[in-house]
Every structure is written in structure tokens, then in C-alpha cells.
Simulated assay, not measured.
Amino acid sequence: MIEQTATVVSVESGYAWIIPQQKAGGCGGCASKTSCASTASPFDLMRKEPQKMRVLNPLYARPGDTVVVGMQGEALVIYSLLAYMLPLLGMLVVAVLGREVLAMFGVVNELGTVLSGLLGLVGGLRLANLISSRSLQSADFQPVILRVVGQPVFNGMAHIA
């Protein structure tokens, strides 16, 4: 399970909208965390407000609570494959097919191959979007609030003497 600390900004029936907290000095995931540039994006400079995420809220966290949000590692791998591999494979397959179909008609043109590749890329992106939106209906693939920071954790197995 991959965990991240976040702040709840609003709640709705069974869900919470959160803003992930950024760690100083990068993500903290490896030895080069202080000099890593992979966490910064040029689009971060243009974004005026932090990115909000919708998560399951089984603990009834309230706005202003600091929470720990978790997501299954397998779900993250599947979403990464959908976001990167499916569009890339779509682009390559449709570009090759487009080149061959155009060659059957006697058209040998790189522009047709490029346009076919772009069509495959867009198709792969749309297919990835469709698959990911349908999988979001499954609770196994959704991020969930695991605990509220600062709230005592109840252990039903604790023995009272």
C-alpha cells in the first residue's frame, strides 16, 4: 500500500476531497531526494491552486483534518500502464497498420504514417480514459483514507485489566 499525508478540504457522501501535502526537498523516495528534479513540473508553476483529489472516506474525516491516504500498489501500476503504455502501443500499431494500408493503395507517404500514428495515440488515450473511468467504480482501485493524524487508533483487541 502506498501512503501519502493530505489535508481534507471538503466532504460529500462517503467521499472526501483532499490536497496532498508536499514534502520539502522532493519526494523523499530515494538517496537523491534533495537534488531530484523529477517531482517538479513546468505546469506546477502555472497552477494557481493545489490539485484536489477525491478519495473514499470511511472514517468520516472532516474538513481541516490531516489524514493518511492509501492506494494499492497494484492499482498504481495498472494506472501507469494505462496512462503510458496503451497510448504508445496504440500509436505504434496504428502507424504500422496505416502505412501498410496506404501501401496497398499505392500511396507511399510518410505523412500518412504520421497521421495514422497520431490517430492511434489519440485512440489509445481515449481507450485508457474509458478503462480507467470504469475501474474507478471499484473500491479496490480507489484511494482511501486510512487514518486521521492525531486521532487515537482504537484497537478492539486491547485487553482492559
Results as ranks from 00 to 15, higher is better:
V122A: 14
P143A: 15
D44W: 06
R54D: 04
N129R: 15
L97Q: 04
L56W: 05
D140S: 14
V77S: 08
T66C: 03
G98Q: 06
L59S: 03
V96P: 00
A37D: 09
L127K: 06
L118H: 06
G150F: 04
S80M: 06
L97D: 02
P152L: 07
W17G: 00
Y15L: 08
G123R: 05
A40G: 04
M85C: 12
L121F: 15
K52G: 02
T66D: 04
V96W: 12
V11F: 02
L88D: 04
I2N: 02
G123Y: 09
E3H: 03
R99F: 13
A161H: 08
K33L: 07
A158I: 10
L92G: 08
G123S: 14
V8E: 00
Q21P: 00
G73K: 10
R62T: 08
S38D: 05
G70E: 08
L121N: 06
G73H: 09
G106D: 05
R147V: 02
W17M: 04
A83F: 13
L119E: 03
G73V: 11
A128F: 11
D65T: 01
A6W: 01
V153M: 07
M46V: 12
Q151C: 05
P87V: 08
P50S: 07
S13L: 07
V149M: 05
A83D: 13
C27M: 03
V11Q: 04
L136C: 10
Q72D: 15
K48A: 07
A128Y: 08
T39W: 11
M53P: 00
S32H: 11
L89F: 13
V114W: 09
S80W: 07
L119I: 14
T7W: 02
A75R: 09
D140V: 11
A37W: 08
R134S: 09
S80K: 05
M1F: 09
A24R: 12
G25R: 03
L115Q: 03
V93H: 04
I78K: 14
T34F: 11
S35I: 13
V101F: 13
L127P: 01
M104Y: 15
G73W: 09
G120F: 06
L146G: 01
C36I: 01
Y15W: 11
G14A: 03
D44E: 10
V68L: 11
Q4G: 00
F105H: 10
E12D: 10
L102R: 01
I145Y: 02
Q137G: 09
P42C: 14
E74T: 15
L56H: 05
K52L: 06
S41Y: 13
I78T: 12
E49S: 05
V68M: 07
I131G: 03
V108H: 13
P63M: 03
T39N: 10
A161F: 09
L86M: 09
I145Q: 02
F154D: 08
N129V: 10
V9I: 10
G112Q: 01
N155I: 08
L92F: 15
M91N: 04
A6G: 00
Q22A: 14
Q142I: 11
V114C: 04
E12Y: 03
K33P: 00
S38K: 13
N109W: 06
K48G: 01
V122W: 07
G150A: 03
A103R: 14
I19G: 00
S32Q: 12
T113W: 06
A83K: 07
L121S: 05
